[in-house]
Design a protein around this nucleic acid. Structure first.
Lengths: 343, 343
DNA sequence: CTGAAAGCGCTTACAG
DNA sequence: CTGAAAGCGCTTACAG
C-alpha cells in the first residue's frame, strides 16, 4: 500500500494519489469486481437491482472506469492525434476548430499538436507512444517519413489538404490547380493582363499546385506572371510580399496563394500605397476564411470548402476504423470561386 | 490467440491489429522483457551492448513502449484536458494556439474540447475517463460542477480567465475591472460624455467584471452608460449590437467587452452608418487580438496579456504536478491600455 | 445471473 | 548487471 511507504520515498517522487478503482466500488457495494465492470458495460448481464446499487456507489465515490486500462483489453482508445502547422494561417485555425468540434461530437478525443513549427516531428514521435485510433495530419505540416512509423504501430493516418500516393493512406484535398485556373480566368475576362503572384512556402504540395494553376492558365493566354514573390501564408507575410512586388513592378492584378496573405497584400496596397482596389489593382485570395467576407476586405477568393473537408475527414476516419484493411482513399473537394469586391 | 478465433467473430468486431510489444522485441533480440523495458528507461542498469541491441531491434520492429500501459504503473500520462468554449471569440483561438504550443514544448499532450457550445459538459465527463494529469479550463466555458468530479478523480483543475474561490483550485485571470476603468478614463479625458457599452454573455464572470468597471468609472464621473447592449463576443454579434445601439441613441463613444465585437461594431459604424471613427464616435475594445493592430482597424483596446496568461497557466501546472497538495493559487494579470486610432 | 481467474503491456522491487 | 514474478485497473471467457 502506498501509505506504508517511507515518507522520504513519497517526497522524492510525488506519486499521484490513485483514482478510485473498481475494486473500491466492489468492496463498498459488497459485490464482485466483475459486477462493477458489468454495471458499466451496456449489454452485460447483471441483476438490475445490483446494477443500480453499483452505479449509486460509483457515483458517491466518484468512480468511473479508467479508459486507459480498458484499452489494454482491446477497446478503442477513442484518442486521435491531430497535427496542424504553425497556426499562423487563419484557415488552419478554422480547420482545427471545425475538426475538434466534429471529433468531439462523435466521441473522439483529439490530442492536438501545433502552434509551433520546430519540434513538431519530435512531438509526433512522442504521441505515437499512445495507442491512438488514428492520426490526422494537416497539409504539409509533416513529412511522409512518419507514415512508416505509423504503419508499424498500426495507427492509420489521414491527411487533410494534401494528396499522398500510398496504398493504405486516406486523404482529402482541394483541387488547388482548378481553383487557381478559375481565379486567373476571372481576371483575364475582366481585362487584366499584368498578373502577379504571391505564393506560400514552395515546399508545400498545395503551393506547388496553386502556382502551377496560375502559371498554366496564364500560359494558355500567352502570358507569364508579371511578378512572383514567395511568402509564408501569414497576414504580415502578405504585406511584405506586396511591398516587394510593387517595388519592382506595377501589376494590374495579384493572385495570392491564401486569404491571409491576400488580406495583408490588400491592406498594404490600400493603406500604404494608396491604391484603389480593384480599380488600380485586383486582388484574389484562396480559402475563403471568415474575414474575407468582412466589409473592410470584401475579398474575392476561391473557397476551399471547410465543412466538406472536415466531414470527409470524419467519414474516412469512421470507414477506416470499421475496416482497417481497406485500401486508401483519395477524396478530392471542389473549389468554388467567390466573387466579391476586389476583382 | 486472435488468429484462432472464428472468422465471424473477427468480422463482427474488427479488433485493431495489436502493436508490437516488449515481448516481441525481447524474443527477437534474445533478451528478457525486463531488459527491453530497461533499455527504454533512462537511469536503468543495463549492459551497454545489450541496450544497443534492444534499441536496434525495437527500431527495426517499430516498437515503442505503450504510454498507457506504463501509466498503469504510476507514471504520469502527460495527458492534459483543455476545455475551450465555442471558439467564435478570436481571443479564445489565440489562447488555444498559444497554450497548445506551450504544452507541446513541455512534453504535455492536450486533449482539446471545444468549438461547440452544446454537449460540452458531456464531453468533459467523457474525457474524465482518462487519467489526465490535469484539466485546463478557459473562462466561463464550464460550470463549477465539474470541480467536484475532478476532485474525486484526483485530477487538478486550472482555470484561465476566471477566478474560482476554491481552496485547491489554481486560476489565472485578468483584472477586467481595472482594464475597463482605464478605457473609460481615456474616453472621459478626451471629452466623451455619451458612452455606450456592448457587453458579452451576462453569465460570464469576466463580463460582469468588465461591465462593473465601465459602470463604476462612469458613476465616478457622475455619468451612466448612454446605452447598453448585450451580445455574444463575436464579430457579427458586435455588428448587430452596434445596429441596435445606434437605432436608439447617438453615443460619442462605445466600449466593447472584447475586440471581436469592437471590430464588428467599428465595421458597422463606418461602412453602414458612414460614421467617422474616432471623430463621430470612439470605439474601444478589450483583449488586443492580432487583428486589432491591422491598419484597417487600428483599434484602441485593453490588452489581456496572452503570453503572460499562458506562461502562468504552465507554471501553475508544473507547480501543481510537483506538489499536488499545495493550496490553490490565484494569479492576477495586469491589463494594459493600448492607444491606437479609434479613441 | 455471478465470481474467480486469466490476460492486456508495462515497470519495478526482489533475489540472484 | 539480470530474469522471473508481482501488480497497475480493467474486461471477458470460463465454469458454475
Amino acid at each position: 500500500m502506498a501509505h506504508d511507504r517511507p515518507l522520504a520515498d513519497r517526497a522524492a517522487q510525488p506519486r499521484r494519489r490513485p483514482r478510485v478503482t473498481a475494486a473500491d466500488v466492489a468492496k463498498t457495494a459488497g459485490v464482485s469486481r466483475s459486477a462493477v465492470s458489468r454495471a458499466f458495460t451496456p449489454g452485460a448481464y447483471l441483476d438490475e437491482d445490483k446494477r443500480q446499487r453499483v452505479l449509486k456507489t460509483a457515483m458517491d465515490l466518484g468512480y468511473r472506469p479508467n479508459a486507459l486500462a480498458a484499452s489494454l483489453q482491446g477497446a478503442a482508445t477513442d484518442l486521435v492525434g491531430v497535427v496542424v502547422g504553425g497556426l499562423s494561417n487563419p484557415y488552419d485555425s478554422e480547420w482545427l476548430a471545425a475538426l475538434v468540434s466534429a471529433l468531439n461530437a462523435s466521441g473522439k478525443w483529439p490530442i492536438v499538436l501545433g502552434g509551433q513549427a520546430e519540434g513538431l516531428d519530435e512531438s509526433v514521435t512522442s504521441i505515437l507512444s499512445y495507442p491512438l485510433d488514428a492520426l490526422i495530419v494537416r497539409g504539409g505540416s509533416l513529412g511522409e517519413a512518419l507514415i512508416d512509423n505509423c504503419t508499424k504501430l498500426n495507427i492509420p493516418v489521414i491527411f487533410s489538404g494534401r494528396v499522398i500516393s500510398h496504398p493504405a493512406i486516406d486523404c482529402v484535398a482541394c483541387r488547388n490547380h482548378m481553383g487557381m485556373v478559375q481565379a486567373v480566368t476571372l481576371l483575364l475576362e475582366s481585362g487584366r493582363r499584368r498578373i502577379g503572384y504571391i505564393g506560400g512556402p514552395p515546399t508545400l504540395s498545395s503551393e506547388k499546385e496553386r502556382l502551377a494553376g496560375v502559371v498554366e492558365r496564364l500560359a494558355e493566354a500567352g502570358l507569364m506572371p508579371a511578378a512572383q514573390v514567395t511568402s509564408d501564408y501569414s497576414f504580415d507575410g502578405g504585406k511584405s510580399a506586396m511591398r516587394a512586388l510593387l517595388r519592382d513592378t506595377s501589376p494590374d492584378a495579384v493572385v495570392c496563394a491564401n486569404d491571409a496573405m491576400a488580406l495583408g497584400a490588400l491592406s498594404f496596397a490600400r493603406n500604404t500605397c494608396n491604391l484603389t482596389v480593384p480599380d488600380d489593382l485586383a486582388i484574389i485570395g484562396f480559402d475563403d476564411i471568415a474575414m474575407a467576407d468582412w466589409a473592410e476586405f470584401d475579398l474575392t477568393t476561391v473557397r476551399n470548402p471547410l465543412e466538406e473537408t472536415v466531414n470527409e475527414v470524419l467519414r474516412l476516419l469512421e470507414d477506416r476504423l470499421a475496416n482497417p484493411q481497406k485500401p486508401g482513399e483519395v477524396v478530392m473537394v471542389e473549389p468554388v470561386l467567390v466573387k466579391r469586391g476586389t476583382h
